[in-house]
Nucleic acid binder design. Structure first.
Length: 539
RNA sequence: GCCCUCGUAGUCCAAUGGACAAGACGGCCGCCUCCUAAGCGGCAAAUCCAGGUUCGACUCCUGGCGGGGGCACCA
């Protein structure tokens, strides 16, 4: 009986015994009450069981308390029935000490999960057009996709991170033409690419020697390399860089169109080839091949999806901008048309990052005007840690406001420093004690006569961490990790204020506090690691 | 017009059916002979509107209002 999960299971079992129905019991929750005086944990079991039993919820809670008392014995210090029928549980210090032991035993895997079912997941993110530098919106996609990948990997999934390179359409030639124009000292066409970066892609003398196809390819490769380097500096790496062009050159697009036709999923009309996505829940059918014979972007997407499927992924996650959320239905439809389960395709639409100027006025981000903040600028100005935390602290479905003028000063206010500071403080504290004393303390974790409320609060906060990660992973919500780590740092700071560690009497109390500090440090480091933020020992 | 999404303190935002809505910034008042003041304590301040479901709603449903996005044989 050393973990919250086991405690939860016991509560479920007790509830199932009362009602004789395990289905209802599965919905029983074990929660942390909003205030410490309401107990260490509480359960809503009685509120759920009361209608089944035809009894008042508070009476059911009382019966449940007796049942739990006999199952838990001395683990349960006392119970209270509260409000409409909550049962509040007060746990013994023995249980808490044992739970801390469990945290220490887990080490840097605290909160991790064993290999999950349907474990292989492909996460595609960023996938920016390789025709210009990454901007702030891509930064959000990069931070999110990377943090989600780290989180899912920690929770037992086998993750492949993938970047889809749009190197096939007309924009490639436009990039080449823009480079050529600059090399010749001519103005760039109005629909070309205008940023200063264009001149840096291919040296002018070389640009003048190449034909437009070669030049376009070289310019694109150079641009892609800049993107890769920017992401690397931001702490983001990909396992697979997948070329759209390769899907055409290998015949994969052609093959998938043939296959869809053979399955009766496509038809010709008005000179074009259409996919029957509407039979799989889309609003209307979509064009695969235009009447001029060119295949559409959608056709490439399907060939790419089929390639992913053939590589054996159980699930394909696409992290796209919110301007693509209308694509969800057609991508799921395409999966169904290929004979797959549409539920294995998951689209996550990230809301935009809005740039706001000094007066709070919204600034339009336009590549044409050069009015945008690049990922490189963001990293240069606020640093990787502050940038990543800022972008990851918000839910993916809320728009983020970024004040361009305050980007630098805002960094000092970033809560990430508060978290890092707590981590550094613990490192300093443990260094002061010496590794021998810390080692000894870990072997001496035992119940102490009376835990200080701040010790208790910090420990319970740590114990909630695995469930935080489980929720965050299930909901694809790495911002919950950011929320949790800040909360843990705050609980630690309160503990640090109230409970002197070095020299605490009796020795058992000092040992427990050392163990608690170490467990906190590890939890902070794990969380920061999942966010891609460093955990410094000194600040 | 239709579809999706979001509306929470002055500002940025958390809370996906639980108890008195969390935190940060900004504001006001206080705190370094004390394991890091990048810190600590205190005060003021919020669920867009109207119905509904529920023992219980920021959360779910209906209808409004407001912001953003999408409704191509563009990529």
């Amino acid at each position: 009986m050393g973990s919250v999960e086991q405690l939860h299971e016991t509560v479920r079992d007790a509830a199932a015994t009362l009602v004789g129905d395990s289905a209802v019991a599965r919905a029983v929750k074990l929660e942390r009450p909003p205030r410490a005086e309401l107990g260490d944990y509480s359960t809503n079991a009685a509120l759920l069981l009361a209608p089944k039993l035809g009894l008042p919820p508070r009476d059911v809670a009382q019966t449940l308390a007796i049942e739990l008392g006999s199952r838990l014995g001395s683990v349960l210090a006392r119970t209270e029935v509260a409000g409409p029928g909550f049962l509040n549980l007060f746990l013994s210090d023995q249980w808490l000490a044992a739970a801390l032991g469990g945290v220490l035993e887990a080490g840097d895997r605290f909160g991790a999960a064993e290999k999950a079912a349907a474990a292989r997941i492909d996460v595609e993110f960023v996938s920016a057009n390789p025709t210009g530098p990454l901007h702030i919106g891509h930064a959000r996609g990069a931070a999110y996709g990377d943090a989600l990948s780290r989180l899912l990997a920690f929770r037992g999934f086998e993750i492949t991170r993938e970047f889809y390179i749009n190197d096939y359409g007309s924009q490639v030639r436009k990039l080449g033409e823009s480079v050529a124009a600059i090399a010749r000292g001519e103005p760039v066409a109005s629909d070309g690419y205008h940023g200063d970066y264009v001149a840096t892609l291919v040296p002018a003398e070389r640009a003048l020697q190449l034909d437009i196809d070669e030049l376009s390819r070289e310019a694109l490769a150079a641009c892609l390399e800049q993107i890769r380097a920017s992401l690397e500096r931001f702490g983001v790496r990909f396992d697979v860089w997948f070329s759209e062009r390769s899907l055409h050159e290998s015949g994969a697009v052609e093959r998938v169109l043939e296959r869809l036709a053979a399955n009766g999923e496509s038809y010709r009309s008005e000179g074009a080839l259409w996919l029957r996505t509407s039979t799989h829940g889309d609003d209307k059918d979509r064009v695969l091949e235009r009447s001029d014979g060119d295949t559409t972007y959608f056709a490439s997407d399907i060939a790419y999806l089929e390639d992913k499927r053939s590589r054996g992924f159980d699930r394909m996650i696409y992290v796209w901008g919110s301007d693509h959320h209308g694509y969800e239905a057609r991508m799921k439809s395409a999966c169904a048309a290929l004979g797959g389960d549409p539920e294995t395709v998951e689209l996550i639409a990230l809301q935009f990052v809005h740039l706001v100027g000094g007066g709070g006025a919204r600034v339009a981000m336009s590549k044409r005007e050069g009015e945008y903040v690049t990922l490189d600028e963001l990293v240069e100005q606020v640093g990787v840690d502050a940038a990543r935390y800022f972008l990851l602290a918000r839910s993916h479905d809320t728009t983020v406001e970024l004040d361009s003028d305050l980007a630098v000063s805002r960094s000092a206010d970033n809560p990430v420093y508060y978290v890092q500071y707590a981590h550094a403080r613990i490192a300093s504290l443990l260094a002061k004690l010496g590794s021998d004393r810390v080692e000894e303390a870990l072997g001496e974790v035992a119940p102490v006569p009376s835990l200080h409320p701040s010790e208790r609060a910090l420990l319970k906060r740590l114990l909630a961490f695995p469930a935080d990660l489980e929720d965050a992973a299930e909901r694809r919500a790495p911002h919950r990790v950011a929320t949790a780590v800040l909360d843990i740092a705050q609980q630690f700071t309160a503990f640090y204020r109230d409970c002197h560690v070095v020299g605490a009497k009796p020795r058992a109390s000092e040992s427990l506090r050392i163990a608690l500090a170490l467990a906190t440090q590890r939890t902070l480091a794990i969380s920061l690691g999942l966010l891609g933020v460093s955990a410094p020992d000194r600040m």
